[in-house]
Computed example of a mutant assay.
Amino acid sequence: MHSSFEHHYSPLIRKLESIFTLADDERRVLENLPMQVVTIKADQDIVREGDSPSRSCLILSGFACTYKVTRDGKRQIVSFNLPGDIPDLQSLHLKTLDNSIGTISPCSIGFIPHEVLHDLCTRYPRITAGLWRETLVDASIFREWMMNVGRREGSSRMAHVLCELLVRLRAVGLVEDHVCDLPITQNEFADALGFTTVHVNRIIQQMRAEGLIELKGERLFIPDWGKLKRAGEFDAAYLHLENEKAAA
């Protein structure tokens, strides 16, 4: 199925416009790129380590994650993937994937053929620069995650990731008054933070008691944004957002 509706591409457009301003012709070409839109259930692989894909996946809705698995089956989540992300964009040039990408919640995924992306990059150098910048921001996020998992402790580690998720979701218009959807389980946080699920549960209860977060089902509310940022030693500079409201 091919689509040319802005409804499908708006997450990508919002994501790119959080880091630079698109011209009208650039917006139009993004709105009219062909892609196959697929709905994928939660806890399913989108692509697997070792694959050699001929297309890249755009997260249109839902939450996904990039992960690796040890020989004995232990999973390490290395990033959360949100609407507007193209988490396997590197497959344009690195032909074999060195990680897997799976859904956390039900997701709508737009698969864009590599030949279409190569043509786009040839004809629109500013979009090429924007996509290249996105891969550099991904690398910046990986570095911050390494610092977070390697050197921060307990609730500080969790607070930092929650701050990042809120800012990234705000950048694509999915946060209102410090409230957002958060369909990430304690087990998935454990795989991302290097904790056991039991320890994640204790940290969440501690953060609730300290007034850092409120959770109602899959909705996260931050009562005091400044307090949570201080708890996580969070500075949004590593996300390199040009939209000041998103980064605030």
Rank of each mutant, 00 (worst) to 15 (best):
M1E: 14
M1D: 09
H8I: 15
P11K: 04
K15S: 08
L16V: 12
S18N: 03
I19C: 06
A23W: 14
V29G: 10
L30P: 04
L33S: 02
P34G: 05
Q36V: 03
V37P: 05
V38D: 02
V47T: 11
R48H: 09
G50I: 00
G50W: 01
I59D: 02
L60Q: 12
A64Q: 08
C65R: 10
T66I: 07
Y67A: 15
T70E: 04
R71W: 10
R75K: 09
I77P: 01
L82Y: 10
G84M: 01
D85T: 00
D85V: 02
I86Y: 04
L89Y: 07
T96Y: 09
D98A: 08
T103P: 06
C107A: 06
F111I: 13
P113C: 03
P113H: 03
E115G: 06
E115A: 15
L117R: 04
L120W: 08
C121Q: 11
R126L: 14
T128W: 10
T128I: 05
A129M: 11
G130A: 08
R133G: 13
E134H: 06
D138M: 13
A139W: 05
S140M: 09
W145E: 14
M147C: 00
M147T: 03
N148V: 13
G150H: 10
R151A: 11
G154L: 03
G154K: 04
S155Q: 10
S155W: 06
S156Q: 11
M158Q: 00
H160G: 01
V161G: 01
L166G: 01
V167F: 03
V167Y: 01
R168N: 01
R168V: 00
A171S: 12
V172P: 12
G173W: 01
L174C: 07
V175I: 02
H178C: 12
C180R: 02
C180T: 11
L182N: 13
P183V: 01
I184M: 04
V198G: 10
H199Q: 13
N201S: 11
N201C: 12
R202A: 09
A209K: 11
I213S: 08
G217E: 15
R219F: 01
R219G: 01
L220I: 14
L220P: 06
P223D: 05
D224G: 07
G226C: 14
L228S: 12
K229P: 05
G232F: 05
F234E: 12
A237Y: 01
Y238K: 06
L239M: 15
L241H: 03
E244Y: 04
